[in-house]
Every structure is written in C-alpha cells, then in structure tokens.
Computed example of a mutant assay.
Amino acid sequence: MASKYPYGCNKKLSLNGWIACRLSGTEPVYKIYCENFIDSSHKKIATEIIELIQYIVSYS
C-alpha cells in the first residue's frame, strides 16, 4: 500500500491532541499541523518545532 504522505510525514498522537510535520511536496517548505483538544498550548509546541527546523536547516 502506498503511503498517504509520499514525502515523509511524522505524526504524533496523544490523549490531548496531535502534531504532524511533513515536506510540502510542491514547495521547498515543511508543513506543520497541530491541534490540542484542551487549550492553546499547541501553538507553543508548533513554535518550538519551527525553531528546531530552522536550526537544523541553517546547518545543512
């Protein structure tokens, strides 16, 4: 069965929400999706992931 995310996707689930990161496939960018079922703390997590990706890319 072919992957739904051919460019590689990392999705993590928890009881309180989920987060997924993947390459765009049409643009040279990463897409980050996240949702929290309780509060807006997912915004902080998304910001941390963006900073981590920027750090990694800056040393590539």
Rank of each mutant, 00 (worst) to 15 (best):
M1G: 15
M1E: 14
M1R: 15
K4N: 15
K4P: 11
Y5W: 08
Y5K: 11
P6I: 03
P6H: 02
Y7W: 10
Y7A: 05
Y7T: 09
G8E: 00
G8R: 00
K11E: 06
K11F: 09
K12Y: 04
L13D: 08
L13I: 14
L13M: 10
S14E: 08
S14A: 14
L15M: 04
L15W: 07
G17N: 08
G17T: 01
W18G: 10
W18P: 00
W18I: 09
W18N: 15
W18L: 07
I19F: 00
I19T: 01
I19D: 00
A20D: 00
C21D: 01
C21S: 08
C21K: 06
C21A: 10
C21W: 01
C21M: 09
C21P: 02
R22I: 01
R22C: 15
R22V: 03
R22G: 12
R22H: 12
L23G: 10
L23I: 03
L23A: 02
S24F: 05
G25Y: 05
T26K: 11
T26W: 07
V29F: 12
K31T: 06
K31Q: 09
Y33K: 04
Y33V: 07
C34R: 01
E35W: 13
N36R: 04
F37K: 11
F37M: 14
I38S: 00
I38Y: 07
I38D: 00
I38L: 03
I38A: 01
D39K: 01
D39S: 02
D39P: 01
D39G: 01
S40L: 07
S40K: 14
S41P: 05
S41C: 02
H42K: 00
H42D: 13
K43F: 04
K44T: 03
K44M: 04
I45Q: 05
I45H: 00
T47N: 07
T47H: 08
T47R: 05
E48L: 11
E48M: 11
E48I: 08
I49C: 11
I49A: 12
I50Y: 11
I50L: 12
I50G: 11
I50N: 12
E51L: 11
L52V: 02
L52C: 09
I53N: 13
I53K: 12
I53F: 13
I53T: 14
Q54Y: 15
Y55E: 15
I56S: 14
I56D: 03
I56E: 10
V57M: 13
V57W: 06
S58I: 12
Y59I: 14
Y59L: 13
Y59F: 15
S60G: 12
S60W: 11
